[in-house]
Nucleic acid binder design. Sequence first.
DNA 1: CGAAATTTTGATCACGTTCAACTTCAGTGG
DNA 2: CCACTGAAGTTGAACGTGATCAAAATTTCG
Lengths: 269, 269
Amino acid sequence: MPSLSLRTTDLPVRPLLPKEAGNSDPFVKRLQNHVSLTPSDFDALRAVIESEQPVKKRRDLVLDGYEFCKLCFVKDGYAARYKLLRNGKRQIVSFVLPGDVVGLPGSFLDRAAQSVIAVSDMNLRVCSLEAFVALCYARPQFALALTWLAVQEATIYAEHVIDIGRRSPTERLAHLLLEIHWRLTVIGIASESAFDLPFTQEMLSDALGLSVPHVNRTLSRLKAEGMICVDERHITFPDLRAIRLFAQFQPANPGRVPAPVPIRRQQMA
Amino acid sequence: MPSLSLRTTDLPVRPLLPKEAGNSDPFVKRLQNHVSLTPSDFDALRAVIESEQPVKKRRDLVLDGYEFCKLCFVKDGYAARYKLLRNGKRQIVSFVLPGDVVGLPGSFLDRAAQSVIAVSDMNLRVCSLEAFVALCYARPQFALALTWLAVQEATIYAEHVIDIGRRSPTERLAHLLLEIHWRLTVIGIASESAFDLPFTQEMLSDALGLSVPHVNRTLSRLKAEGMICVDERHITFPDLRAIRLFAQFQPANPGRVPAPVPIRRQQMA
DNA sequence: CGAAATTTTGATCACGTTCAACTTCAGTGG
DNA sequence: CCACTGAAGTTGAACGTGATCAAAATTTCG
C-alpha cells in the first residue's frame, strides 16, 4: 500500500513562490482570473506555503478513506482523482492539471472520498488547510477565490456526469478532450487548437465509463471522421468550432469575483 | 419557453428569515454545520435577502445558457439541475433539496451551464450574488461557509460520476436513494431509515443514465432482495447498514471550518 | 536488451435500450 | 356522476451497443 501522506519534512525547503510568481505559477494565474491580488497579498500567500514537494509518477497523493488536511497547489505534472470499487473497477472522477488544488475537495471532508494518484512526476506547493483558512479570515478575497475554484470544480464534475450519463461514446470522448484542451489553454500550456494529452487510453476509459478497447475504437472513429488528428500523444483539432459544436462543449467561465465595494456605497446603487 | 428569471418585484415582500430562523431554516441549519454564527451575523444575513419567492411546480428557475446572478436559498420544495442534449436526452446532474442553493454553481459563471426546474411547489429566499459577496468581504465566515457548500456540492457530483460510470444499476439506484435519504436527514426531514421520495422514476432514470423501464425493474429488484420497502413514494430501508455496504455509500461529511484563530497565535502552535 | 505498459484488432455475448401496450390514479369539466 | 385527459408506473419482446475475453503488435522504460 502506498504511503499515506506527504511528509513535509522530507526535503529541505526550496525557494517558495519566487518573485515572478505572478506570471509563472499556474495556481496564481488561476487565482488572478477571479480576484486582483496586491503585492502584500502575494507575500501573505507565500507565507502559508510550507514546502515544495516533488512527487514521483504513480505515487498516491491522497488515499480514499483517510484524513488528509493539506492543500497542494500543482506547480507542474498531472494526476487523477479516482475511486476503486468493490468489483475491482475504477472510476476516474477528474484529472488534476497544473494550477489545480489537490485536496479540493478531499481535505475539506473528515475523510477523503477519493484517492488521487500522480500520473506523471509532479511538483507541488503544500500548505495546511488550517493556515489557508487563517489567510482567508485575514484576507477574504482568498476565501472567495477558493469558492470560485470549488465552483469551477463542481462545474467540471457536472459536465462529466452529463458525458457519462447521456452522451454517446464519440461525443463523450470528444467532450473530454476538449475539456482538457481548454483547461490547458487557460494555464497557457496548450496552443489554440492542439495539445499534448498526458493520459493513457486506460485512464480515459476509466474517466468515461467505457472499456479500453471501446475508447480505442472511438478514438479511431474521431480520427476517421477528421475531427481530431493524433500523433503520438499530440492531439490536434483541425476545426475547433466544428468539434465543439459536435460535442456541445461550452467552456465554463467562472467570472471574476465582484469587487469589494464598501457596503455603504453598494446600498446606494 | 419558460420565463427566464425570477422577477423579485412580483410579490410584496414577506417577513424574511424570521427570528427563529436559527432553528427552522434549512439553509441556516446547513451553514451552522460549518461555522458558528452570532446574532449579528444573522442580522447581516437577513439584510442581504431581497425577497421570498413562491415558485410553481414545473417552472424553470434557471435556463441553460442564460446569465443568472441570484442566489436562491431553498426554504422548501424540490428541484432538479439538468441539461438537455441535442439528441433530446436529458441528464439530471443533481437534485436540489431544501437548504440547497439554486445558483450554485450557475450564478458564478458568465452563463449557466445547466437549467434548474422545480419538481414541486417551492419557496425560495432570494439574494443577489453581489450582495452576498459583499457580505463575505465584511464577514469572511460566510465566504468560507460558501466554500464548504461548494465543496460539498462537488463531492456529491463526484459520487454521481462514480455511480453512473462504474456502478451496476442496482448499486447505482441504491446509492442515489441513500444519498437523498442522507441529505434529507441532515436537514431533519427524514427519519433514521425511511423517507418520502420527492422524485418520479423518470427523474431517477435521467439522474442515473438509465431508461425508465430499467429503473422500474431495478427498483423491483431492490424490493425483491429486501433492501428497500416501497409504499407509494415512501421508501424504507429495513437494514440501513446492509444497503449502505452494498452500495458502498459513505456519507460525505464536510467538517467544520477551522476556527478563526488570530494569525499570531497560530504561528506559535 | 528484457520486461512491463500501452495500443490495437477480432469474436462473442449479455445487458440495458427501445418501442409498445396497458394499468392505475388524480384532476377536470361536461 | 362519469367520461376524458395526462402523468406515472409496470410489463413484455426484440434489438443493438458496448463489455468481455483473448491475443498480437507496439512502445516505453528500467
